[in-house]
Write a protein that binds this DNA or RNA. Structure first.
Lengths: 185, 185
DNA sequence: GGTTGATCTGAACGGTTGTTCAGTTAATCT
DNA sequence: AGATTAACTGAACAACCGTTCAGATCAACC
């Protein structure tokens, strides 16, 4: 029980205040422990951050593969967009950490996380390339288009609030419209 | 002379390692000073960060107003996109800090910075609304489109490297193509 | 040449950091 | 009932934090 509670508290605090600004004592106090007890569950603070990041990215990869399915490129793109938004709106803290705390990772750990993120980007690029081959997309540079679309979609986490005027589904619909036009032939 | 050198060192270090992870002693050592000397140029660390952020955002606002000019909405949008990318690729550290260190600002300072950013977003939203009124843009929700376009454009700073295969102008051209299609009627 | 005023040093302040560890606690198993 | 084991405490460690300030330094002015 304690392990997951520590991860959850660390996730919340890292997202809220940043990795460097959060102390092990703050995390421990959130869970009702002394700082020393945390070291039964993580070798050190850095490993805790890395584990949160890789856990999130591996989950993202597994779920996106399941959501995308097979079929024509446009259908796969729509599935990707809707999945990406739904997933990101559901896990704002994980997302925030995964691309905000990269600079607090030691070089080895950074490379590890970066490889996972690259695999996710490659999934989208493959869809764009397939659509271009099918003749339904007009994408002069699939790499740049991939990064542009992902940046646009991920940006939703910076302003979306569940109590706002738009539901998550409505937001996904608006973004899908924009992405569709962006890559349209 | 010393004042600007301190700001420049702080900018570089904050962007590289994050505000919370950088100590006043590190900044001072970068400039060849003792930590105490910094307090001749800033009342405290927080004010140094705030000054870097507001300085950048005010510069961004002033220059974007100059770049945008007057004319039909589509021309103003193209000017906005090309300006935004050129400016952001020229000042990666400032940009990085301005939307990465928001959570390290005290509430009053946060509101101050957020107001400046909002004014910049409003400039783009006004262009999109004008284009919709002219009938040349199809934008069902100007607020969401504004945020989506800015996120897409700003994302360029996460991957662009001056020595890469694309020049800044080429990148701006690709992004303008995508933005044009995104809002096209 | 003496004085002023800005600039910077170097030490000190109280407090916090990540991490370790001997020892207490409490639950589980034989 | 006694032994084993995992979980946790509480204190300690050396290092570092932002900030203050008395005094040294040194160029510019009268």
């Amino acid at each position: 029980m304690t392990g997951p509670r520590i991860r959850q508290a660390a996730l919340r605090l890292f997202a809220r205040h940043g990795y460097a600004a959060v102390s092990m004592r703050q995390i421990a106090s959130e869970v009702g422990l002394q700082a020393g007890a945390l070291y039964n569950y993580t070798p050190d603070k850095q490993a805790l951050l890395l584990s949160l990041m890789t856990g999130h990215l591996e989950d993202l990869l597994a779920r996106s593969a399941r959501a995308e399915g097979t079929g024509p490129a446009e259908a796969r793109l729509e599935a990707f967009v809707r999945f990406h938004i739904a997933y990101h709106l559901d896990r704002p803290d994980e997302v925030f950490i995964a691309y905000m705390e990269l600079r607090n990772l030691e070089p080895d750990h950074f490379a590890q996380v970066e490889a996972l993120r690259r695999r996710y980007e490659d999934r989208l690029e493959a869809i764009l390339a397939a659509g271009r081959d099918e003749g339904v997309f007009d994408v002069p540079d699939t790499k740049i288009a991939t990064l542009a679309v992902i940046a646009m979609l991920t940006g939703v986490t910076t302003w979306y609030r569940p109590a706002g005027r738009l539901s998550a589904d409505a937001v996904a619909g608006l973004y899908w419209d924009m992405v569709r036009k962006t890559v349209a032939a």
